[in-house]
Simulated assay, not measured.
Amino acid sequence: MSKGPDSAKLHILASTVLSDVRIGDSIAVNGVCLTVTTFGEGVFTADVMAETLAKTNLRELRPGSKVNLERALRMGDRLGGHMVSGHVDGVGSIVGLERHDIATIVTLQAPEQVMRYIIKKGSVAIDGTSLTVVDFEQDKFQVSLIPHTAQATVLGSKKIGESVNLESDVLGKYIERLLQSREDKGTRQSKLSMEFLSANGFL
């Protein structure tokens, strides 16, 4: 990573994500949507502005750091996890690691702007990896990693105290916004409510 006064340029070694890459394509790096500015044999570069450095863990990257990489979803592709936009909501930290049979239970501390959307069996992206919430408390939640996820993503090699990028499920954000807009210019009451969402299988 080469740094400017308030920005940075990432130089990332990669293979699979470069198979059909073009300048201007989006590639998520640890869950942060970045734009490919140059690429060559086995490497691409992406610019990171000051806001992104301030609000994500990309500022902690050093030469040799491993990162999760994901190309943008194509319309018509299978959606194996949940819809991830690459817009990080906050940075959390790993506060617990526990083996349970084949699984690794990871406990993460997260800021309020993430926790407000956390529900049991709901979805969350951790460094860009789509995972299911096992349980949660006021400022913490747990996910479970199968061996494949632990081996194929950076989360499996992280230690207690290390930071992670967190992105809440966008569905929760839309529901919250709609509930906040129950009155249309103060003249019409929306039918959307928590009771309606529950009765129709959304909660």
Rank of each mutant, 00 (worst) to 15 (best):
R71V: 09
E112L: 05
I146K: 14
S65I: 14
D6I: 11
C33N: 05
V143K: 07
P5K: 01
A28F: 09
H148I: 14
A54P: 06
T107I: 01
V43D: 03
D135V: 08
L166N: 02
P111Q: 05
G172K: 15
A125N: 01
G122R: 01
H100I: 09
Q180S: 11
S198T: 12
L197P: 03
V91N: 00
D47W: 04
A199Y: 02
A152G: 08
H100F: 08
R59Q: 13
V67W: 05
L61D: 01
R99A: 12
Q151P: 08
F202C: 04
L73C: 04
I94C: 01
S168I: 00
D184F: 12
G122C: 01
K121R: 06
G81C: 09
I102N: 14
V36E: 01
Q138A: 08
H100W: 05
S181A: 11
K120Q: 15
Q113A: 06
E176L: 00
R188M: 11
V17H: 00
C33L: 05
A14V: 10
A110C: 10
E162K: 09
D25L: 01
E112V: 14
E137Q: 14
F39G: 02
Y174E: 06
R99S: 13
P111C: 05
A54E: 15
F44Y: 15
Q109L: 07
K55G: 13
S181M: 04
D127R: 02
I126L: 12
V21C: 04
M75R: 04
L34S: 04
E162Q: 12
R116E: 11
S181V: 02
L58F: 09
S144F: 04
I146L: 14
S7M: 03
Q113N: 15
T187H: 10
K191V: 12
I119G: 13
V91T: 01
R74Q: 14
F136A: 01
Y174V: 02
G201N: 02
A46W: 10
S168K: 02
G201F: 07
V43W: 12
S198K: 14
R78H: 13
L179F: 08
P111N: 03
L192H: 00
I146P: 06
R74W: 09
A125I: 03
F196A: 11
G86P: 00
V88A: 00
N68S: 07
R71K: 11
I27E: 10
E98W: 09
D47F: 15
A14E: 04
G161M: 01
Y174D: 01
Y174C: 06
S15L: 09
G122I: 05
N30E: 11
A103L: 12
L108I: 14
T104W: 05
K121M: 13
T149N: 10
K3A: 09
V134H: 13
A50M: 07
S157N: 10
E112Y: 13
S85E: 00
Q113W: 08
G80F: 15
V154E: 02
S7R: 10
L178E: 10
G90E: 00
G201E: 03
M75K: 10
S65D: 05
H11I: 12
V84R: 00
T56W: 09
A54N: 15
K3T: 10
D184V: 11
L197Y: 03
S65N: 12
V170Q: 09
K191I: 12
A46T: 11
H82P: 05
S144L: 04
H87F: 07
L131A: 05
A28K: 02
V84E: 03
